[in-house]
Design a binder for these strands. Sequence first.
DNA 1: TTCCTAAATAGGAATAATTCTTATTTAGGA
DNA 2: TCCTAAATAAGAATTATTCCTATTTAGGAA
Lengths: 143, 143
Amino acid sequence: MVNRSVVKILAKHGMKITPQRIAILDVIINLQNHPTADTICDYLRLSYPHISIGTVYKTLDTFESKGIINKVYSETDTMRYDGVITQHHHLYCIDSERIDDYYDDGLNKLLNDYLKKKKIPDFIVEDFKLQIIGRFNEKNKTK
Amino acid sequence: MVNRSVVKILAKHGMKITPQRIAILDVIINLQNHPTADTICDYLRLSYPHISIGTVYKTLDTFESKGIINKVYSETDTMRYDGVITQHHHLYCIDSERIDDYYDDGLNKLLNDYLKKKKIPDFIVEDFKLQIIGRFNEKNKTK
DNA sequence: TTCCTAAATAGGAATAATTCTTATTTAGGA
DNA sequence: TCCTAAATAAGAATTATTCCTATTTAGGAA
Ligand SMILES: [Mn+2]
Ligand SMILES: [Mn+2]
Ligand SMILES: [Zn+2]
Ligand SMILES: [Zn+2]
């Protein structure tokens, strides 16, 4: 039942394979919600009652510094995390905390070409992320 | 010495004109740093020793809800504020907390046209912001 | 101009998110 | 199997933000 690919990721980055790390990485990769540390912790406690919130924070931070996960900037004062590291963008809901992934290779290419051509003075572009702000429509309001 | 346009903005939004509001709005519009509430408070205290951090937070929140200023999403757990409300984007420095404004009407148009044409399923786009992540080069490293 | 009152503020307490500390446990190499 | 550096749990501490309440004040009404 343990996600083998998760173990591989940890190994590839030279990290000790611990049950906590496996569980945390598994949850963040499989939860698509851009969860907070607290959400992850609550979820983990269902199957792992003793996990400590401090460990969750520390582990997420470690993952982030190794590039295994990303932080997602948001308007609340609670950090959110993202298990998807391939280039993508985010749909921010004006009416709720919901943040959805938005994949669009055409957009990536468009922006990449534009920024490459543009040459912003005194700044070397390494990456970019588009925050698309708006509303999910009726059919899609739950979730 | 009091910035008259700041008073006008407050009046336009039907807010009481208080010394605190004038000072806070003046600072955030003139400070280009995307400052935190705390930075604003420290700065204000030079000329206004008794201003309360709670008032600063509350006032910034009021301004934001009236659309007079914006919040800027960032990676730290400290909210940052932006006195510029015309459409623009941000340059995020990988090596520091620095966030600079980036104005580019060509980019605005490009993205606007693209998103208008694209029609993201089940989502109505109201606005968008590009986070451009990278490094400021030597000449521009101070500030 | 003076008075009145709802709204705003100061100052401090409370809360929430995150980080830190330390004793204990454990992964994994020798 | 043993050893040790690294990881974890639990709780304390810190930091950012919000809340509470007594006091002050802006600005409309008289
Ligand atoms: Mn914090
Ligand atoms: Mn907080
Ligand atoms: Zn995402
Ligand atoms: Zn800005």
